[in-house]
Amino acid sequence: MSEHTVRESINRALAEELERDERVFLYGEDVGDYGGLYQVTDGLQDRFGEERVFDTPLSETTLGGTAVGAALTGTRPVVEIMFGDFMAIIADQITNFAAKMYFNYGDGTGVPMVVRTTYGAGDQFGLHHSQSPIGWFQNVPGIKIVAPSTPHDYKGLLKASIRDDDPVIFLENKLRYEDEGEVPDGEYTVPLCRSERKRKGEDVTVVAIGGMVDVAMEAAERLEADGVDAEVIDPRTVVPLDKEPIFDSVRKTHRLVIVHEAATFGGFGGEIAAEVAEEALFYLDAPIERVGAPFTPVPFAENLEEAYLPDEEDVIEAVQNTLGR
């Protein structure tokens, strides 16, 4: 085990997969020479050459179309979309092509492509560069959506995503690139579609997604001082969702709080709440609480952006609500 940042973990995952499988290649806006807007792909072009790591024009439509085509020919493209906001531009290629080929042909045709993108607010990038696009794609069958939270998971899940035969949207939280954590030194992957209990607890279940896992964990630490024992579950793969661990946890704690960064209304938390209402309603001792952003674009002003983003206080308040305090 060694300490690595999220940025290093992603870089290593890409390097290892480029090394392991010659079908893997990486492209996008500024990923080559510049090493990526956030320096995530730093050094990869030097190491693997311009044939396998290269820059493209500013055209997400082209990125999506070429990736689908390349994947259909048997390669494994990894595309970087600089900001999750621009997933709206590549959405047609993902939704109507990448996600549909398997079902359209019914002969095992797969589209093994990975679309890496950054998401989230907190860096004062304003309303066009700060969104969380999970909700735009959660209703599209045929793609997997991965939102890791730790350096360990970022690396293992990205490697698994590249090896997966389905199209994967791999979400990287802008504010977490510098986060450090233990990462195994040797080869490993983290399986897709498996949630993980990040913290064991008895009083309330907190399901947190992506960058909000850290927020939930910090809230749980503070709640512990108040004698509240919170369980934190990180789905890791958002779609398709590994539901049973959530049901099991709710059956134990009888309370559920869901935390994500996107707007609460229409967000993924609503899906989890609905699933639990269907499967475990009679185990609930309190209304389900959702913690997310208000239904408004991400504000630019620093103080407004801070108010917009869910934080530990919001999670703690929601937990206290479920406890009837």
Partner: peptide
Amino acid sequence: DPAGKPEG
């Protein structure tokens, strides 16, 4: 202009 033009 604090945000610059990060998208390029």
